[in-house]
Every structure is written in C-alpha cells, then in structure tokens.
Design a protein around this nucleic acid. Sequence first.
DNA 1: CTCCCAAACTACACCGCGTCGTAGAGGACG
DNA 2: CGTCCTCTACGACGCGGTGTAGTTTGGGAG
Lengths: 141, 141
Amino acid sequence: MPHSTSAPRLGDLERVVMEHLWEAATAAGAGFGGATVREVHDRFSGEREIAYTTIMTVLDRLAKKDLVTRERDGRAWRYFPADTREALTAQTMRRTLDDMEVTDRRAALLHFLDGATSDELDDLKAALAEIESRAGSRRRP
Amino acid sequence: MPHSTSAPRLGDLERVVMEHLWEAATAAGAGFGGATVREVHDRFSGEREIAYTTIMTVLDRLAKKDLVTRERDGRAWRYFPADTREALTAQTMRRTLDDMEVTDRRAALLHFLDGATSDELDDLKAALAEIESRAGSRRRP
DNA sequence: CTCCCAAACTACACCGCGTCGTAGAGGACG
DNA sequence: CGTCCTCTACGACGCGGTGTAGTTTGGGAG
C-alpha cells in the first residue's frame, strides 16, 4: 500500500517545478533522472526570470510535503519526483471524491463521465479491463 | 490562467455549509428547498458555536464563487446550491485532471481505479453503461 | 588561506478562509 | 411616533500557504 496520506495541493510554481522534474525523469528513461536546484533553475533561463533561491525554497517545500525525494549528488542535492504525474493526479482526484463525502458515487461518476470525450471513455474502458483482468486472474506470465 | 469556469475549491466551513444546503434541498424534494442564513445558522446550534455573521460571510462568498444562487424571501435571502454535490465533485475531479496536464490519461485513470473498491468499480461500470446507452449526444466542443 | 557554490535559515507580501463586529434599513408594535 | 428586532452590507483581523527573495554558513577547489 503506497502512502495513503492525502495528496497536498500544489501552487502554480510548485506545479511547474514538478513539471521539470517529471521531464527530467522521462528524458533519462525509466532509470530516473531527477535534477539539482541549479538544473531546474537553468531550465527557467530565457523563459522567465526567477531567483535561484526561489527554486531552492520551492523544492524544499515539495520535499517537506513528500512530493519529491532527494539524494546527495556531490555537494548538491538531486531531487526526484516521489510519484508520476499520473499517480499524483489520481490521488488528488480520489481525495476529492473522499473529501466531498459523496453518498451517491455512481451519480458523481456519471457526471464525471458526462464531461468526458469518447477518447477518454475508451481510456477508461481500457483501464477498467486491465483492473478486471488483474483481479480476475491473479498470477500472470 | 484561464480557468475561471472551473469549480473553485472549498474550505472546511464552506463545505459544511454546502452540506446543509444540500440537505435542505433533498429534504424538500427535488428543485426546492434552499435555506436562509438564519436557517443554516440554526442548524449549527448545539453542534457548534458560530456567529450568525460568519454564516452570512460564508454564504456570501459561496455566492460570489457561483456555488450557490439566492432569491429574496421577505427581507432575507434564500440560498440554493447551484449544483448537486455529485456534480460539483465531478467538476472538481475533472478540473484536477485538466490542471495536471496529464498526457497519459489512461495511466492516470488506471491509478485512480487502482485505489477503488469493487463497489466503486461496479458504480463506474454502471455509469459507463448508462453513458453508452444514451450515445449520440456529446457535449463539449 | 581565499573564493565560490550550494545549502540553510529568515523574511515579507499577498491571498484565501474562518471568524466576527459594527453600521444601517425597514418592519412590527405599543 | 419611537423603540426594538432582524437582516443585510461592508470591513477587519489572524493564520496558513505560496511566490519571491536576501543573508548567513559551511565545505571544496585553488
């Protein structure tokens, strides 16, 4: 069971920084890339003027919220997203569902699907099928 | 940041007040109900000490966020939830999905379903079936 | 020993939300 | 009429979260 501590909300800058970390992760393959404060800060160059220490603060707060982890890399810290963007999104959506204390989940889900594109419905069906198959036949090759 | 049409987030007290409004709505049958500031305030009696004006402020802010509407009822205003709890929940969940700019929605949904109970999966399948059955009219451009 | 870099700590402004207080406007009623 | 009561309108204060950054400190590279 992954950490069930409900996902904290992100501010705009926090989200953008996470963005960079996720990019760094995928760019480095599944083996994880992560980034130092300087690397993240450099990504902002030309795009936006922002202080190095601002990035440090943001990364520090993200770490305190357990949204990122960090490891030493020489004298600097290297930051890694604690979850994929998709996992964090799912946690946040679930938290909403819980917080709202919805009694009629079916109705809520119906409303949710009501605003979905057909592509999304396909995605959902695919996801559902996968879950089912996973639950139905435990143990697969 | 152009997401003004999306659902704003609720604070704790705001949520509790919405709670009362939703109760009032269902208790009075579909379509009517609503409550005045005094009625909402009275609901808190014995359960919690809170100022009348606090309720007024909260209801006022909810109205500014378009989460409730109001009509004159004598000298007082009568407040009505703008959406059902389920609809608001769905909007918030969708907003999360949009804000996070998830590229792989299928993965996100998969994570979401991963934390679902089997009852919830049933609800989802039912909702999905219903959407499918009334196929043909798709909203959103 | 000196310099530079990165971390750590502190600071500050702003906004959202919980929490009220006070000032008025209009009925109700003696 | 004057008094009282009830609601609204408006504003205020404190606190926590977030964006933003400056200052201080400690440890390597010369």
